[in-house]
Every structure is written in structure tokens, then in C-alpha cells.
Design a binder for these strands. Structure first.
Lengths: 230, 230
DNA sequence: CATAAGACATGAGTAGGAGTCATGTTAATC
DNA sequence: GATTAACATGACTCCTACTCATGTCTTATG
């Protein structure tokens, strides 16, 4: 429920109707993305489907890219909510199970949430080591602020899971893992409608292997081990 | 020298002048990409800088995306050439050194070759397990043919290195590794002009760790081991 | 060499999308 | 009730991708 997507907006909707409209525009944007892709998506068509005049569209969104970025943030937010919720349900005996859970949840959202499979997750991820420099005019300040929020949530979830604070190395490793997993899963969905199961499995292996450098327990080799979480 | 970039062209240039012109358009495309990014790149400006009338541009390139894809293929081709050349120079005692070499070479090209850091490598990579389905009109048949060539070269290099044929599992693992490495390196260059050294190191670790499942030798742990290549 | 076939050259022109803005309407605030 | 600010609207401008009709140069071939 944490609203994270405000930063890419030109004006934050305050009244009921405008709030609904912004939400509707994001919905239609997601569906259109699935249908025609980013390139062919037109702001006019998004506005038309959301039954909103084009002027209103630009009252809230700065441009086409801002619209998609706002959607990406909303998606990411929803994903983090779901992972948090699932983690509250299950008790994990091992951090590798958390990896599987997160990836499974990600796959589920790719399958079920419109637009989720299309938007570039990396565009919204926090950049470790200070704010990005970005050659040109992109990346609004407010968006950066949101990224910090997201980064904090990622960190918070992990700290909660480990029961201990994490250092800058693990912090960076998490970002790397997410970036890599995102890319591999995108590949998995490029060749296969519901995501190539083999590639999804490879994605889990990739992340588990990599994080075993940074997280306690489980000497890599396959057998379950001494590395309990709590 | 292997020309791989023809498939995205509308017409293959046969005469000297047109060949130079196509090459020049790709050069200017690369430089413009560095300056303004994909979104803001215009075909008219590319044509203007290459001193080519806009009509001629569209005589050879189908559209803006085709232009960039052709550049991506040329870049990829150049990269593979360099890696092949380097491998012929050095004698490796361990496959992990090949990973380092390839990633280092990739970083070098990102730093030195215009446009290399901007174009999406994943767009051009082969899709394992049959041709992509691609919801819409994208992905020309000829481009797919090129991808097969590229995939073959990747495979050939690895086979040459290992001195043995590789199975479908390792084949897929290679694609996964390249996809993941590309994503992480893109992240490295997003935060840091010449690529964050820490993230580059993490990228190597990621790939080494992952491939140690699939390649002989070197129990993961750090110490060099029994896994010689030749 | 002559001549036909096809590669190449050219830029004004067309279609359509991104984003604006002047003018109005509705809701909050005091 | 009046002032302020949020919201609404769609014709309009600017610009970009891409086309096409027409003409020129290369090359193959007898």
C-alpha cells in the first residue's frame, strides 16, 4: 500500500476523481504496453482508453517516459508488498528459500500483472554508490527520492530476514543480484509465454550461488546445511 | 571482420560509396547515442551528420530501431572478434581466466567504443529454445539468422576453449551468464563514468560462481584448483 | 561500345504523435 | 461569499518517422 509512484508525477492528484483518473491511466498504460510495447504506445491512446482528455494526461504526467516510470514504480511497490506479505506467512529455515520465494513471486507477477513483463525494472532500481550522473536531462529528482525508499525497503526486508544489520558489501550484492535476476527472467519471458521453466530454475541457481559468498551457511554444493536464518 | 550486421538492412549495399555511407551512418548513430540516448536520437540528425540525404538513409535502414539493431550487431561482432584475438594470444590455465578476460574486454569496449554502453545487448542475443514469439511486428527474420551466427560464434569460442563439445545445459548457461553479466555491467556504467570497479569485480564473481556449476574444476571457495583447460 | 537492368540518389511531402496553452469549471479555505 | 488553488478541456503547434516519384550512376553482357 505504500504509495511510491508520486515522484514521477508532474502534479500529485489530491482530489478523489483525479486520483482515480491517474490510477486508470496507469492501468491502461500497463495493458497497452502488453499489447503494443513501449515504442508503439501513444499517450493519446492511453488517455482515450482511460476516458481522460489528453490535456488532463499532461496535467499529471510529465511525458510518456514519466508515465511508464510511474508504472514501474507502482509495480515494484506491489511486488515488494507481496514479498513482504508472503514472508510474514511462511517461516523460512534457510535464506535460499527466500531467494526462491522472491523469484517465484516475481514470476507470478510477470504472468498476472499487466505491463509487469514489459517495463524495465532496472530503470527504477537504486544505483549503489551515490546518485547516477546520467549524461542528459533524464531522472527527475523526485524519482531519485523514490528509489531511496525502494532501496530502503529491499534492505529492510533483508535485515528482517537475517535478524542482523547488513554491511555495504551485502547491500551492493543485493542490488547486483536483483539486476541479474531481472535480466535473466526477462530472457525467460522472451522465449516462452509463461516464462521458460528451465531458465527460471537457472535464475534461482544464479542468485543462490552468487549470494552464498555473502550470506551465512550452506556451502555451495546442493545439500541443505547448517545455515538457518533465525 | 565477419560481417554480421547485414540482416537488419533493407538493402545490402553493394557498391563502394554506399558501403561507406552505411558505415558512416552507423558511426554517427553510435556517437549520437552517446550524446543524447536512444529516445532523443533522430534519423534526420544521423543522416545529417553522416552527410547523407534522409532518403538514402531509408534506402538501407528499415527504421530507427533497425539502425540501432544493426549497430548492436556490429558492436557484438567486434567484441567477439577481440575476444577471439585475445584468446589466441594468451594461454589460459583456467576457464575462470577466460571469464575475466571476456568481461575485461567488454568493459574496455564500453569505455572506448562509441555507442557500446548504450545499446541493449540483450536485444541481439540468441533466444535459447527456438525463435522468440514476440507479441508484435518486431524481430525481422534476417535478424534472427544473424543471431544464430552470433550464438554459433559464442559456442565455437567456448568449445575451442574447453577442447570438448558442450551440451545443451552449458549452452543455455552461457546465454544466461552473458545476459546477467550484461545487466550488471550496465548497472556498473550507470553509476560510474568508466564503470564502477567494485561492480565489475562483482560481475566477475557472479559469472564465475554460476559457471562453476557447469564447468569442470575449481571447487568454489577461491583457491585455484585442478581445473585446467587444455 | 551500346544498351538494358538494377543499384543508388534525392528532398519535398505526408501522416501522425508529443506536448502546450488559453480559457473555463469545480473544490477547498478562510 | 470571496479568494485561491486544483482540475478540465481539446484545438493547436512543432517536430519526427518514413515515403515516393523521379532522376543518375554502375555493371553485366552481347
Amino acid at each position: 500500500m505504500t504509495n511510491v509512484s508520486g515522484g514521477t508525477l508532474r502534479r500529485r492528484p489530491a482530489q478523489r476523481r483525479s486520483l482515480e483518473r491517474v490510477e486508470r491511466m496507469l492501468d491502461e498504460c500497463a495493458r497497452l504496453l502488453d499489447e503494443v510495447g513501449y515504442e508503439a504506445l501513444t499517450t493519446k491512446e492511453v488517455a482515450r482508453r482511460a476516458e481522460v482528455p489528453i490535456g488532463t494526461f499532461y496535467q499529471f504526467f510529465p511525458d510518456k517516459q514519466g508515465l511508464v516510470r510511474a508504472l514501474a514504480l507502482r509495480n515494484l511497490d506491489a511486488f515488494l508488498d507481496r514479498v513482504t506479505a508472503r514472508l510474514a506467512e511462511v517461516r523460512l529455515s534457510d535464506w535460499t528459500e527466500m531467494v526462491d520465494l522472491a523469484i517465484d513471486e516475481f514470476v507470478v507477477m510477470k504472468r498476472s500483472t499487466p505491463g509487469f513483463a514489459v517495463v524495465d525494472f532496472g530503470e527504477v532500481l537504486p544505483t549503489p554508490g551515490g546518485p547516477a550522473l546520467k549524461g542528459s536531462e533524464r531522472m527527475l529528482d523526485a524519482a531519485l527520492e523514490n528509489n531511496v525508499i525502494v532501496a530502503d525497503r529491499l534492505r529492510a526486508i533483508t535485515i528482517d530476514l537475517l535478524g542482523a544489520p547488513i554491511g555495504p558489501r551485502l547491500d551492493r550484492a543485493l542490488v547486483v543480484a536483483v539486476e541479474a535476476a531481472d535480466a535473466v527472467l526477462k530472457l525467460a519471458f522472451r522465449s516462452h509465454r509463461d516464462g521458460d521453466p528451465d531458465l527460471i530454475e537457472e535464475c534461482k541457481r544464479l542468485v543462490r550461488r552468487y549470494l552464498s559468498d555473502h550470506l551465512p551457511g550452506d556451502a555451495p554444493g546442493g545439500r541443505g546445511g547448517a545455515g538457518a536464518l533465525a
